[in-house]
Design a protein around this nucleic acid. Structure first.
Length: 420
RNA sequence: GUGGGCGUAGCUCAGCUCGGUUAGAGCGCCAGGUUGUGGCCCUGGAGGUCGGGGGUUCGAAUCCCAUAGCCCACCCCA
């Protein structure tokens, strides 16, 4: 244990890596159907990209960001989330606010937190942002796309919860009423919520303490304070979700941890995880582009937590044992000449997209057969002196344990003529 | 930042309560059993500063202390 990856940072290796590949492939397949294009932004940004956007009093900015000065003295930060960098890139490259831009991204994010199940200091998000459309129908379509993505991966127990946080016009009225309510009932609140009351009262909605939970359910609801626009838009979102057959649960307690969200907010949760049960979250953030120095452009986005997603996929699949289907070929050679011949033939097969293994050290045939079996080869080609003389080899089918003699010049044809 | 749990082979763990000869098992890995044939089986082998450090003791994986780490939960979030 002399060297260890940093706390909260993990190596992603086989066999898990294949699930990651699957998830990535699925994203590249589905998101472009909705006209999203991939964007890759730097992992490191000027610190202000995040402090200005996420909100000074959020946990992320207050104590979770990896921040340091580079050698030139500039304050930089490892990105703790994906939206702000995408917005920064949007402002940098797109001058026309009438243009609709749709981006998706995936990559590592960093937050200095205490690790626990489903939460790490380096984690990966798959997200998307749409800039330039204010219609709530888009909100619904974005959410629907996430749902489609999950279904495509075979995820069954993801639940969508949705809410409206109101806008800068109506939210302050609610906040005042809610604060008054908390203040009146201060003696019933847990110590954490007493603290939250002053700083960020909305957070009390999120409290899992049974007493606070029951209390805030009795209190004023954001939905009684929504202005006409917000209420109409929220109805449209729900209506459109119905149209698209996406099941949802309205939950007035969905409060997001970043300050820039307005109106529609949503989370997908799963009971297959531990206490970190959110697998995706997002919402509308119409004011952010302006706030970051760009034009006044409406926007919607979301992010999916990939570690958690992979966890769920593993949990849901664990019931069925994986089936090993053999593929590829292993050259079992006897003698230096045969090995040389195999090295050359191996390249031909690899060029034809066939996985090929061989032994370089002149091990016993038994040993080579074991290697072939372990790599999961469908065929083994045995080449020895007698075969070399006749320019042929024994082709062994590892599933049926049958062997045929084939010409060394016709390996490719022979392999390709066998139905997979 | 707060609380609880855990550290012995690549992996999963036994041994620790009641300190005592070369620290074990299963799986995995390598080799042999058939000097030209895999899986099953049999035999053998490699692999461990018992997290690192300090202390008690004739003697510490085992008892004590303090450290770094891992896990889980709170906080918060993906």
């Amino acid at each position: 244990m002399s060297q260890h990856a940093l706390r909260g940072m993990n190596d992603i290796r086989p066999p898990d890596i294949s699930i990651w590949h699957e998830v990535e492939k699925c994203a590249h397949e589905i998101f472009p159907r909705y006209l999203y294009q991939e964007i890759r932004t730097p992992i490191l940004e000027d610190m202000s990209v995040f402090t200005r956007s996420i909100g000074d009093t959020t946990n992320i900015v207050e104590k979770e960001m990896y921040v340091f000065q580079d050698r030139g003295g500039k304050w930089v930060a490892l990105r703790p989330e994906g939206t702000a960098p995408v917005v920064r890139a949007y402002i940098e490259h797109h001058g026309n606010p009438d243009e609709v831009v749709r981006y998706y991204y995936m990559g590592a994010m960093y937050r200095y937190e205490r690790p626990q199940q489903g939460r790490f200091r380096e984690f990966h998000q798959l997200g998307a942002e749409v800039l330039g459309i204010s219609s709530p129908k888009l909100d619904a379509e974005v959410i629907h796309m996430v749902d489609v993505f999950f279904k495509h991966l075979g995820i069954k127990n993801a639940v969508l919860e949705i809410n409206s946080l109101g806008c800068p016009i109506c939210r302050p009225k609610f906040l005042r009423a809610f604060f008054d309510f908390l203040h009146k009932n201060e003696d019933k609140l847990c110590s954490d919520c007493k603290r939250r009351m002053e700083k960020n009262p909305l957070r009390a909605l999120d409290c899992k303490n049974p007493g606070c939970d029951a209390l805030t359910r009795e209190g004023p609801s954001i939905h009684d304070f929504l202005c006409e626009d917000c209420e109409k838009d929220f109805d449209t979102v729900l209506e459109t979700l119905g149209l698209l057959k996406t099941e949802y649960k309205v939950n007035p307690k969905i409060v997001r941890g970043l300050d820039y969200y307005i109106k529609t907010t949503f989370e997908f949760t799963s009971n297959a995880l531990g206490s970190q049960n959110a697998i995706a979250g997002g919402g509308r953030y119409d004011g952010l582009v302006r706030l970051m120095g760009g034009p006044n452009v409406p926007a919607v986005g979301f992010a999916i937590g990939l570690e958690r997603l992979v966890d769920i996929i593993k949990a849901e699949r664990n019931l069925t044992a994986p089936v090993l289907n053999r593929k590829g070929l292993f050259f079992a050679t006897l003698g230096e000449k045969a090995l040389q011949k195999a090295l050359v033939l191996a390249q031909q097969l690899r060029n034809a997209n066939i996985p090929v293994g061989l032994d370089y050290e002149g091990k016993s045939l038994k040993s080579q057969m074991r290697k072939a079996d372990k790599m999961g080869a469908e065929f083994v080609m045995v080449i020895g002196d007698s075969e070399l003389e006749k320019n042929e080899a024994q082709l062994r089918n590892m599933s049926s344990s049958t062997e045929t003699t084939i010409s060394l010049d016709q390996i490719l044809q022979a392999l390709q003529s066998i139905p997979a």
